[in-house]
């Protein structure tokens, strides 16, 4: 699933490591999320949504997932 996690993170001046600590996941996981290699579970997706103060659908592109 496509997402704009990288641009949201960069807008805040965070490294992947810093975002990983905010979300309590590994840097490897943040990288996999940003590159679309991994789709997060609902709890993690909601943590991301809460952290950036944006609804899920503005961070993740569900159309991309539905087409897959």
């Amino acid at each position: 699933m496509k997402n704009n996690l990288r641009s949201l993170r960069e807008a805040r001046g965070w490294t992947q490591g810093a975002l990983a600590d905010e979300l309590d996941v590994s840097r490897q996981t943040v990288n996999a999320l940003e590159t679309g290699r991994y789709d997060p579970s609902l709890p993690l997706a909601f943590r991301i949504s809460r952290l950036f103060g944006q609804p899920l659908e503005s961070i993740f592109d569900p159309e991309e997932a539905l087409r897959a």
Binding site: R9, G13, T15, G17, A20, D21, S26, R27
Partner: peptide, 20 residues
């Protein structure tokens, strides 16, 4: 902007290091 930081030698977060 922060990609430069992401390619630094420290390839982990604080949590990663604590878990490792």
């Amino acid at each position: 902007m922060t990609r430069k930081l992401d390619t630094s030698k420290v390839d982990s977060s604080r949590g990663d290091r604590a878990r490792a």
